[in-house]
Amino acid sequence: MDLNLIRIFVAVYSNGSYTQAARALNISQPAVSQAIKRLEDSVGMPLFIRQGRGITPTAKAVSMAEPLETAMNLINGAFSSERRLLGYGVEAVLHSIGKLDGIKFVLPPSDQSQALDDLRTNKVELMVDNVMTEDPAFVSELLSEQPIVVVCREQHSRLTTETMTREAFYNEEHVVLKTRRGGSQLLDVLTPESLEPRNETMEVTALSGMAMMISSSDLIGIMPVSFARLWENKLSLKIMPMPIKSLPLALHLVYHRRFTDDQHHRSIREQIRERVNQHL
């Protein structure tokens, strides 16, 4: 059996598309189609059938997929102990992970669907984010949950106590993150109640930029508590509980199921979990 045929079959099955498989493998779609036809001739029955504009696996393909994907992961793992993964990681958790041999983290795109497509096509191999998905192609593990807090500078001209009122929250000027998910800002997603309009005076692209701006002005901002504690003493910040109801920020470790048994990938995941758990 040609090992390349198995590699292409696994890619088609996991991506649910000849086109996406071709993109992930960096080969042409006709080459993918021809490989699947050769494999079908070898097993003596069809593996995928056309359904609308897409394809769906046959019962034979389903029965073959798991053992072949496991075998390919083991084979890939035998040659990948020194490879360097590329992953998406949000700033809210990267300070917890720090420098980790074997992986390079970059910030994810603001479009959640694009980030998942990049995982599907192997542009990146894992993601640490507040992304939520029920797509069965991915494994999504809860990595941590932490409250969000309000942050201001210690010498704020009006916020002189250790807490703030709901009225003060809406009266003060806010610095907010530019990043949005699903068209909403983070606070919109994590607040179960209807929000009043906030006085959004400034927009930044990073939590670190938010912390710096807060330290040198009377602006207030909202960030995860672990990130706020990181800068609390360095920038003379004050951390206050949210004066409105809010849910904890849930960060997930998300990766494609093709990497479940990959030895190197699994080692990186274990180190990420350990680093985050130690930091929180």
Rank of each mutant, 00 (worst) to 15 (best):
L3V: 11
V12M: 04
V12C: 06
V12E: 02
Y13L: 10
Y13A: 14
Y13F: 13
S14W: 06
G16D: 00
G16H: 02
S17G: 10
Y18C: 07
R23M: 12
A24N: 06
Q29H: 04
S33W: 14
D41E: 13
S42E: 14
S42T: 12
S42F: 12
I49Q: 13
Q51N: 11
G54D: 01
T58M: 07
K60D: 05
L68R: 06
T70K: 15
A71Q: 11
A71S: 14
A71V: 07
I75R: 06
N76F: 11
G77T: 09
S80F: 05
S80R: 13
S81L: 14
E82C: 08
L86A: 11
G87K: 06
G87T: 08
L94E: 01
H95V: 04
S96A: 15
S96L: 12
S96D: 09
L100A: 10
K104W: 08
V106Q: 12
P109V: 02
S110M: 09
D111M: 02
S113M: 05
Q114G: 04
Q114T: 14
D117L: 13
D117Y: 12
D118H: 13
L119R: 07
R120H: 11
R120Y: 03
R120P: 02
K123W: 06
L126P: 09
V131M: 09
V131Y: 03
M132R: 05
E134Q: 10
S140C: 12
E141I: 07
S144T: 14
E145M: 13
V149W: 03
Q155D: 14
S157N: 10
R158W: 10
T160M: 09
T161C: 08
A168L: 12
N171P: 06
E173N: 15
H174S: 06
L177G: 02
R180L: 07
R181G: 00
R181M: 00
S184C: 00
D188E: 08
D188C: 01
D188Q: 03
D188N: 02
V189W: 00
L190T: 00
E193P: 01
L195P: 06
E196V: 01
E196A: 13
P197A: 04
E200K: 12
T201E: 14
V204T: 01
M212E: 15
M213N: 01
S217T: 15
I222E: 03
P224Q: 00
S226V: 05
R229S: 07
R229D: 09
R229G: 05
W231V: 11
L237V: 09
P248E: 01
A250Q: 10
R257Q: 15
R269V: 10
Q271C: 11
R273D: 07
R275E: 09
V276D: 07
H279T: 11
